[in-house]
Nucleic acid binder design. Structure first.
Lengths: 335, 335
DNA sequence: CTGTTAGCGCGTTCAA
DNA sequence: TTGAACGCGCTAACAG
């Protein structure tokens, strides 16, 4: 059951050298005669010796672990980003400790404590609170993704939310829509306003007045009513809906079906996040696609640059461009 | 930048006690006078002291980390399971190191090395190779989920695959289908045969002969052709398709649309895995729902029981029941 | 009940 | 080029 794993002492004995020589041979730091090195390496895989990362970390005072704190791992958008982060970090010799905050402040704090206790080298977080501040104060390098809660305090990878929302809205306006309902999500504390700004910018560009009755924000009371339903009840003249994330798009579709409305005949729909099911539906859902793999990669790169000291100084914000994928869910409004 | 984190020596000095007393006060092991304990605790959060998990692990010779090795984290089924695992383990004081194998043996081996080096307390794996064997040999406690590649060597949490497939097939047979195409996936090395067995069992129960031309297995050549297409080309009399995982269901839907076929009028469809989009589609997709949260919880429980020594001896296999969710994608075959 | 001592496994001085 | 000695931060024996 409890196997005693070989230590570097065992290895040294097996190779007939001292522990420090064995260490140098494997880490590649310091002088070691070539034949000696080969002898040590041979002994290592004969024994199946794997250096104890715990002891090594204690000695070196740093780990190869990166904390990844996600607000909703079940959401395909974040699952994609997290997967990209893992892949990229792994290729650079790091592993990730994943925590799901479920959008809760207290879970973020708990995760942050685990991260600092584990002495992670850095953290990548899709935050719902200014948790990065705590981490930074504890000496941890942080990169925020998707949302920015401590602007100016750490690097961040964000989407050009306004541009994406403007493109989506303009697309609807070009088709002739003038009454476009906007579904704003719950956790969109920074993305929400930006996407709203893009929506307004498009309206302005087309000379269409902004009507805040078309704006459906998340109900503050939890256990929430269906937002799409609230919107449609309030504004019966809506001809298109812009859902600012994939969860709201899902909800909107459900409500539209329940009401027996047809897309795009009765109502057009545009979504943020190009999730796989959006291309499966008939008609497909027109969507603002986020470059999830690039987001993950960029976040990992930003973090590693800091850790390696390749970049110091002021925080950097990388803004990635979304792209509008037009499908069948958008068409001219009913006459 | 580099903040020197307070150590237990700092804490001891601040509280005016020895290091070991401070340790006992925080860990709660061994005697400590109540007023002393309070003094230490007060000093701890005055200093923002967080015990160094690395040093602690080295001393205690065990960590609170669990390795979670998933074959495809982007697949909603696994994302759901992983999230459940994380939630459950976190509540018990563990954190998870996540690795995505992408279905590749070599990635599994790499992850296993990272896990053993990190001295994880245990591993939960959705395997594509007998990687559990290596881990067990290295003294790591392992639980296999979804698939079993080293049966008898470690605990496992599996689905009643045959029962699920039989229910789905029987549902189609009851509707009158007699020519039911079966799409078998790639990585279904253990789930595939079981699901096939369920399919055959249902046929037998209804007195319908088995025709292996209706069986479409994953093409061995990678870069593969569309399996649904191959099936439909080969058997033009197919009236229903049973896709044995959500990815194949997605592929099937795409092909069905490309061919201009209507569901369920021309073709019925049943899927394994009840992913969120299946209830969004019109018609909704009839699906065999897996209890993802229970799978994750059960795996975590099995692992923790072993780690805590609450259970020893022969490996246990937990078999969870799927449920058939009937939606609009299944109907009697065309006359 | 508390403090002193020892050592987990490793990498890194510093002499030889 | 190698080995001996030290200590990373912590907890478990053991005395007191």
């Amino acid at each position: 059951m409890t196997v005693r794993r070989p230590t570097i002492s065992d290895l040294a004995r097996e190779a007939g050298v001292s522990r420090s020589t064995a260490s140098r041979a494997l880490t590649g730091r310091g002088y070691v005669a070539t034949p000696v090195r080969e002898r040590v390496v041979a002994a290592a895989d004969r024994l199946g010796y794997v250096p104890d990362a715990v002891a090594r970390s204690l000695r070196v005072r740093s780990t190869r672990a990166i904390g990844v704190l996600i607000s909703d791992l079940r959401n395909p958008f974040y699952a994609d980003v997290a997967t990209a982060v893992e892949r990229h970090l792994r290729s650079r010799g790091y592993h990730i400790i994943v925590a799901n905050s479920d959008g809760l402040d207290e879970e973020e704090r708990a995760a942050a404590t685990v991260f600092t206790a584990s002495r992670v080298a850095g953290v990548i977080v899709a935050p719902v609170s200014p948790i990065a501040r705590r981490l930074i104060d504890a000496g941890v390098t942080v990169v925020e993704i998707d949302r920015q809660m401590v602007a100016g305090a750490c690097d961040a990878v964000l989407l050009e939310n306004a541009a994406g929302a403007e493109a989506a809205t303009a697309h609807l306006l070009e088709l002739g829509h003038r009454r476009i309902g906007l579904l704003l999500g719950e956790m969109n504390w920074t993305t929400g306003p930006e996407r709203l700004a893009g929506y307004r910018a498009a309206l302005e560009r087309f000379g269409v007045p902004f009507d805040d009755r078309l704006l459906q924000e998340a109900p503050h009371a939890p256990g929430g009513e269906n937002q799409t339903s609230l919107l449609l009840d309030r504004c019966s003249d809506v001809t298109a809906i812009f859902a600012t994330n994939n969860l709201m798009a899902e909800e909107a579709l459900g409500e539209i079906q329940r009401r027996g409305l047809a897309i795009p005949r009765d109502l057009s729909l545009v979504a943020f996040d190009d999730i796989s099911w959006m291309s499966i539906l008939t008609p497909g859902v027109t969507a603002v696609a986020q470059p999830t793999a690039e987001i993950g990669r960029a976040a990992a790169d930003l973090l590693l640059e800091r850790l390696n000291g390749e970049r110091t100084g002021d925080p950097v914000v990388v803004r990635l461009d979304p792209s509008l994928v037009v499908r069948g869910s958008t068409a001219p409004p009913p006459a």
